[in-house]
Amino acid sequence: MAKKRVRLADIAERLNLSKVSVSKALRDHPDISKETRELVKKTAAEMGYLPNLLARSLSSRRSYTLGVVVPKIAHAFMATVVDAIQETATQRGYGIVLAVSQERADLERQHIERLLAMRVDGLLVSVSQQELISKCTSGCGRWACRSCFFDRAIEGLGFSSVIVDDREGAYRAIEYVIRKGYRKIAHVRALRRCLSAVSGGPATKPPSGMPVSRSGRSGSSKADSMNGMVTMLQAPAAGQRIA
């Protein structure tokens, strides 16, 4: 049987104080003496009291909670990002609620709607591949909280975003391996936007004037990427170097 939840009224009854005084003491309000605040906090801890965050958020209009939506969690990059978000949020007195879309646009929408219903103070979203390809996030223009895309973003929605400059990063990487003497360089991609990073586009050209051969895409799963890499490695003739 579940244990009965301790209420402010229970603490007030034990200490012969009003609920308002107990509430103020737990919030370190200056109207309450230091001795009384310490007594209330000690009694609350002994009784196993936990504050009602929902009620507090209704009165303060803030939940001190951030919603974080990522496409996958079993991924070194995403795990590092989530860890950094958690650490930074904690330092500023916030908690996070983490949701994983599994690269599905429908699940992503469900997570976002649930987080909004929880009245989170902000949303940090790394968009799923399905959503990025379709370039449409249902109702996101009506998100009633501060929001920011990271790693992947959809342009034209008016939200802030923190993303990697794929073109510049790929360009520098290719220049580096060329300086190391490699000439046949393979790139296994998943998202369409990655191709422009290595093949040149409005902002870039292939390093050193090297020709670019488009031999198809590998797909978006880990297995597809592995198969694509094996195919690339088997392609060069003997004696050729491949990066």
Rank of each mutant, 00 (worst) to 15 (best):
P51N: 07
L54T: 09
A55Q: 07
A55G: 10
R56P: 07
L58Q: 08
L58M: 13
S60F: 00
S60G: 02
R61V: 05
R61P: 04
R61E: 07
R62E: 12
R62T: 10
S63L: 06
Y64L: 10
Y64N: 14
T65W: 00
T65F: 00
L66W: 01
L66D: 04
G67V: 00
G67E: 00
V68R: 04
V68L: 01
V70E: 03
V70R: 07
V70C: 06
P71W: 02
K72P: 11
I73V: 14
A74G: 10
M78S: 14
A79L: 01
A79G: 08
T80R: 10
T80N: 12
V81I: 12
V81A: 03
V82A: 07
V82G: 01
D83C: 07
D83R: 13
A84I: 13
I85D: 01
I85C: 03
Q86E: 15
T88V: 14
T88E: 14
Q91V: 08
Q91P: 05
Q91K: 11
Q91S: 09
Q91F: 04
Y94W: 01
I96E: 02
I96T: 14
V97I: 15
V97T: 15
A99V: 05
A99C: 04
A99G: 07
V100W: 02
V100T: 11
S101R: 04
Q102R: 13
E103N: 05
R104W: 02
L107C: 08
L107F: 10
L107R: 13
L107T: 13
L107I: 14
R109L: 12
Q110D: 09
H111W: 11
I112W: 02
E113T: 15
R114L: 09
L116Q: 10
L116E: 07
L116C: 06
A117W: 02
M118D: 13
R119M: 11
R119Y: 11
R119S: 09
V120P: 08
V120S: 09
V120H: 03
V120C: 05
D121G: 07
L123A: 03
L123E: 03
S126T: 13
V127D: 08
S128V: 02
Q130S: 05
Q130K: 01
Q130F: 01
Q130D: 09
L132P: 08
L132G: 14
I133C: 11
I133S: 15
I133H: 09
I133D: 15
I133Q: 15
S134C: 06
K135R: 15
C136A: 14
C136I: 14
T137S: 15
T137A: 15
S138D: 11
S138G: 15
C140V: 13
C140T: 12
G141K: 09
R142G: 04
R142A: 12
W143M: 01
A144P: 11
A144W: 12
C145W: 06
R146L: 11
R146M: 11
F149E: 04
F149C: 06
F149G: 06
F149N: 10
R152W: 09
I154H: 03
E155I: 04
E155M: 01
G156F: 00
L157R: 01
G158C: 07
G158Y: 03
G158W: 00
S160D: 13
S160N: 12
V162Q: 08
V162W: 03
I163Y: 00
I163P: 02
V164S: 06
V164N: 05
V164A: 02
D165K: 00
D165T: 05
D166P: 04
D166H: 06
